[in-house]
Design a protein around this nucleic acid. Structure first.
Lengths: 232, 232
DNA sequence: TCAAAAGTGTTCTAGATACACCCATGT
DNA sequence: ACATGGGTGTATCTAGAACACTTTTGA
């Protein structure tokens, strides 16, 4: 039995609280954002972030987890609150503030079927279509937050498949920083951090020679975590 | 004539939206947080952050500016949204989410009279009393956010008076990082950034020899701003 | 055999760190 | 005269940046 809490504060405030998720996905070469065709009015049929209202019996994290689960079927998605957008007229049909999260997922966990079911589509970061409301601003701020976080925490590994190659890792860094990176320096850096384990297996699709797979060494990483490592 | 916006969304959500401010102030040697004795129920008389509800016709920034202005009489206070707290039971008398800001002000702008008027008091960061609700958590997260921001942006100057000495600046760095810092290295760093101008005037209260005053060179700083400077 | 991407080491430079003595002044 | 905090310079170390050739293999 769910009982609605009655506020003891006297207040005629009427603001609704929503969560919006900037879902980043990396396809091995480019960084993408998942957008959906909005299924209800207003702005039905336009491209939009994935979102929903916060329930009376859940906090914003729980709402984001629920929304991400409904869309993907996945649990334990890496996500982080990065900002709250509250302009009075940001939503054209009511006063709604949006608690914004970015989420990092591995594109390969996302089937074509799933995309069709939700009328969803991956868009490269430099090719975001016109979005409803202030969602473009939310995407841009999400990207900035991701970039800052990325500098000190190894969250990028959430965007990669379990096994990944160093050229893929380099593409990821370059996509997030929008700047070229030297192969040799990246390898040296990863070597000195000691958080990658080389597998005796090669990825052969994207080159003739093939690139060795690596896995992320969680145990070694945890030891570093206390000391605010620089990852780039 | 203010007309309330009627939402077109069907939704029985009943959440109120508040803003809370972690106001940091530096007294020349320690970093403090401004707390007030809560003036209304529930939890009346307990220590609390400064806050208030977001009005129907203002966004969260505007609410924070209003709240800070009401308390201090000051405008153009440096402030930044750092997180939104939304646990279902965080406020014991209703569902209220709190959009949290940290604000940086110069303690010397704050008269004793002002403190008395609002039943407010500065508390050193390591001596925060028991606070209502989740305000302790908000303070801790605010401190972390301040620290991260401080690394790359010269926001610390908002905590200092217009004229300040290098020993004071050092105290500020040490207070924010809770770690000792070498005098000579700090001076070298500031010298190389070139954003301080030495005045021909000394502060004589805190030592016999006296320490030269400096001012922050806004023009030189702006030139640096594009390039993500490291400030520590 | 050649095109295309993977892999590999060294040098240079700038910034961070560590460190100890003299200076100015009020009491 | 001395105690107190302010001011200064150098040597070392480390991390980041720049840079070019060899290897593998499928077509």
């Amino acid at each position: 039995m769910i009982q609605r809490k009655i506020s003891r504060y006297k207040n005629d405030q009427r603001i609704q609280v929503a969560v919006d998720c900037v879902i980043f996905g990396f396809d091995g070469s480019r960084l993408n954002v998942l957008l959906i065709k909005r299924s209800f009015e207003p702005e039905k049929g336009k491209w939009s972030l994935v979102g929903g209202f916060v329930g009376n019996e859940e906090n914003a994290d729980e709402a984001a987890i629920r929304i991400l689960h409904d869309l993907t079927g996945m649990d334990h998605i890496y996500m982080e609150l990065f900002y709250t957008f509250s302009d009075v007229d940001r939503d054209t049909s009511g006063r709604v503030i949006s608690i914004a999260y970015f989420a990092l997922i591995n594109v390969s966990n996302f089937s074509e079927q799933l995309l069709r079911d939700h009328e969803a589509k991956w868009f490269p970061l430099d090719k975001i279509p016109t979005l409803i409301f202030d969602h473009r601003r939310i995407v841009l701020k999400g990207k900035e937050s991701l970039r800052r976080k990325f500098e000190h925490y190894p969250i990028g590994f959430n965007l990669l498949p379990k096994k990944f190659t160093l050229p893929q890792l380099q593409n990821l860094y370059e996509a997030i920083y929008e700047a070229p990176l030297d192969r040799r320096n990246l390898r040296k850096k990863m070597g000195s951090l000691g958080i990658l384990t080389k597998l005796n297996e090669k990825e052969k699709k994207s080159s003739r020679k093939g690139a060795f797979y690596y896995v992320f060494d969680t145990v070694k990483y945890r030891k570093l975590q206390s000391s605010r490592v620089k990852f780039i």
